[in-house]
Structures are given as C-alpha cells and as structure tokens.
C-alpha cells in the first residue's frame, strides 16, 4: 500500500452565463473529491459578489458574459483568488493568457485538461497572482479607450459610464472617482486610469487630478504661476503648469 497525501481542499466558484457550460464543469469537478463547488454564477456581478463574500480559492471564469466580462471581474477581485479562464475563442484573450502564464481552458475541453488546470491552480495558491490587471489590459484591443468604470464596494459592483465621471483624484493608495454627486474608491493609480481614458475628453490637470473637460466652467489665475480649474458645479481644482499647457492644447 502506498502512502497518499490527503489533498488540500479547493473551494471553487463556477462562473459562466450558459447553463450547459456550468453543468459540464460541475460534472467534471465531481470526479475531484477535494474540490468543493461553493457557488455557481451566471454572470460577472454574481461572481464578484461571491468572491468577496465567500472564501473562494479558485474561479473558473468564462470570458464573454453579459453585464461584466471575465476580464472586468478580474479587475475587481482581491488578489488572492486564483483564476482559470474558460473561453471559446478570443484572439486577444488567448494572447493575454499566454503572455501572463495564467491557465485557460478552451471550450470544448476534456476532463483531463481541467484536472491539469486544477493542479496548476493549487500549486499557485497562496502565492501572489501574476499581475491580473495586466491580463485584462493585454486582452483589451489596443487603442480603444474605456467606456465605463467599475468600482466594487464589498460584494456590490458600481458601473460608472465614463461620460458621468467628473473628476478622478489620487489619494493615498487608491483613486477617488467623483460622479453623480458621489465618491467611489478604486484600487488603482491615477496614471493607470489616465492611460485608459480617452485623452480627448479627460485631462490630467495636476499630479493628483484628472478632470472631465466637459465639466470645466473656466480657469482662474490666483497667483503668478498658479491657476484653478472651476467646474460647472463650483468645485475648484488646482492646475499645475504642465497641466495648464495640456489643457490649453485640448481647448
């Protein structure tokens, strides 16, 4: 009799908008006694909620889903969840997976292939995930600016269309987004955000501020080399010298 090591338990959430696809994963996973399916989600919003509220080790995540895509889910996850993507066909996604060495299953896939993915995920568990945000960025078709911003508050996801964003402000280690009279906190740097916004509509007026050009009312000068941007709702923001020249180019 050979000595076998008790396999670690693996808590898995299945995320796919198609019932047959979920059923297949369920069936394959039933052969792995160490795997516990803690949730099945039919869309990305549910997935983000489940990942926030349950102690999930691994997400089996479809890429194309209504509401939130698999990549958008990725952006909103805490970093200690392992992710295996499950996708039918997407050239951008495949390139992104290959570059970032995250495992992915191409539909249709075999039970053995899923078994390999589980093994790899288990090996990675507890180690920091390789730049998940980078995968999302790499999978995006180049040159296409963001159309909406996603912010998670606990299990809830807020979707902010970019045209509704007034100001983004860099705080300690997060960005504060102001929209529709509310403030949202997003774990991101202001430079990352700036890179993804349409440069024709958003201008970095200051080291700590990006402003929606459409919200600008006027620019005031208050000292020799200092200016203030006054928004239509009366908010005043500092404008640096470099920010002023960027603004002048745009307007």
């Amino acid at each position: 009799m050979t000595e076998t090591k008790t396999p670690d338990r693996l808590r898995v959430a299945i995320v796919d908008d198609e019932e047959p696809a979920r059923a297949l994963l369920r069936e394959y996973l039933a052969a792995h006694p160490e795997v516990e399916v803690v949730a099945e989600c039919a869309n990305g919003f549910e997935a983000v909620g489940v990942a926030a509220e349950h102690d999930v080790d691994l997400l089996l995540l479809d890429v194309q889903m209504p509401g939130l895509s698999g990549f958008e889910v990725l952006e909103l996850l805490d970093r200690d969840v392992a992710v295996v993507f499950v996708t039918a066909y997407d050239e951008h996604a495949l390139r992104a997976f290959e570059v970032h060495a995250v495992d992915y299953l191409l539909k249709p896939f075999s039970a053995e292939r899923l078994g390999q993915a589980l093994t790899r995920a288990r090996q990675r568990l507890g180690r920091p995930q390789p730049g998940l945000a980078g995968i999302a960025a790499a999978a995006r078709p180049p040159g296409v600016p963001l159309t909406r911003l996603l912010v998670r508050e606990g299990p809830q996801v807020h979707v902010i269309p970019v045209e509704e964003l007034d100001v983004a402000e860099a705080r300690d280690d997060y960005v504060c987004l102001r929209s529709r009279g509310r403030e949202y906190r997003k774990q991101q740097t202001l430079a990352e955000l700036e890179a993804r916004l349409d440069p024709g509509k958003f201008v970095r007026v200051h080291r700590s501020f990006i402003v929606n050009v459409e919200r600008l009312a006027r620019i005031e000068r208050y000292a020799k080399d200092s200016r203030l941007a006054v928004l239509k709702d009366g908010t005043k923001l500092p404008v640096s010298r470099a920010g002023y020249s960027r603004l002048r180019d745009k307007l």
Binding site: E18, P20, A21, A23, L24, E27, Q64, A88, Y89, D90, L106, K107, P108, F109
Partner: peptide, 18 residues
C-alpha cells in the same frame, strides 16, 4: 463565427453526460 461553433460543441460535450 468560430465562437458560435466552439460554444455549440461545448454544449454538446456537456449534454453528452447529462
């Protein structure tokens, strides 16, 4: 659309068991 084809095959793969 290859996406359609692969998803359809995946559905068939799923139904084969159940």
């Amino acid at each position: 659309d290859p996406h359609f084809l692969f998803n359809a095959l995946n559905s068939i793969s799923s139904l084969t068991g159940s």
